[in-house]
Simulated assay, not measured.
Amino acid sequence: MDLTFTPAEERFRVELRAWLADNIPPRWRSRSFWSAIGAAEAFELRRDWERRKYDAGFAGISWPREYGGRGGTPGMQAIYDEETQRAGAPPTVNALGLAFLAPTVMAIGTDEQKRDIIGPMLRNEVIWCQGFSEPGAGSDLAALRTTGVLDGDEFVVNGQKVWTTNAVYADKMFALVRTEPGAQRHRGISMLLIDMRSDGVDARPLRQLSGASEFGEVFFTDVRVKVTDCLGGAGDGWSTAMLLLSFERGASGIAQYTAFRGQFDEIVAAAAAFGRTGDPVLRQRLASRIVELECLRYHSMHILTQIEKGAELGAESSLTKLQWSHTHQELWETFDDLLGPEATLTRPRPDADLRGMQHEAMWSRSVTIWGGSSQVQRNIIAERLLGLPR
Rank of each mutant, 00 (worst) to 15 (best):
M1A: 10
T4V: 03
P7N: 08
E9Y: 01
L16Q: 05
W19S: 05
N23Q: 14
I24S: 07
R27Q: 09
R29C: 09
S32A: 14
F33Y: 15
F33G: 04
S35R: 15
I37T: 05
G38Y: 06
G38I: 01
A40L: 11
E41W: 02
E44L: 05
R47Y: 04
Y54V: 05
Y54I: 01
A56I: 04
G57T: 06
A59I: 05
R65V: 13
G68C: 03
G68Q: 02
G71W: 07
T73W: 07
T73G: 01
M76H: 03
Q77S: 12
Q77M: 10
I79S: 01
E82S: 09
R86F: 07
R86D: 03
A87H: 09
A87M: 10
A89Q: 10
A89M: 01
T92F: 09
V93W: 05
A102M: 12
P103G: 11
A107C: 04
D111T: 14
K114P: 01
D116T: 11
I117K: 03
I117N: 03
G119H: 13
G119V: 09
P120D: 11
P120H: 11
E125W: 09
E125K: 08
W128D: 08
W128E: 06
Q130G: 05
E134T: 06
G136P: 00
D140W: 09
A142P: 02
T147Q: 13
V149S: 15
G152N: 10
E154Y: 09
Q160N: 01
V162W: 01
W163S: 03
N166G: 01
A167V: 13
A170W: 05
D171K: 07
F174W: 14
F174C: 10
G182K: 15
H186T: 11
I189S: 05
S190F: 12
L193E: 08
D195S: 10
S198H: 10
G200K: 05
V201M: 11
A203W: 08
L209R: 09
A212M: 10
S213C: 01
S213D: 04
F215Y: 13
F220R: 05
T221D: 15
V227F: 03
T228F: 01
G232N: 07
A234K: 05
W238P: 00
S239F: 02
M242A: 07
L244A: 09
E248G: 02
S252D: 15
S252I: 01
A255M: 06
Q256H: 08
T258E: 15
A259H: 09
G262N: 04
I267K: 13
A269N: 11
A270Q: 14
A270T: 12
R276V: 02
R276S: 14
T277H: 09
R285A: 12
I290N: 02
L293C: 05
L296G: 03
L304H: 07
T305V: 02
I307L: 15
K309T: 00
A311P: 00
A311T: 11
A311R: 11
L319H: 04
T320W: 00
T320E: 02
W324K: 10
L331T: 08
D337P: 04
L339M: 15
L339Y: 06
G340I: 11
L345M: 08
L345H: 07
R349K: 10
D353H: 07
Q358P: 06
Q375L: 13
Q377I: 00
N379C: 06
R384W: 12
L386R: 12
P389F: 14
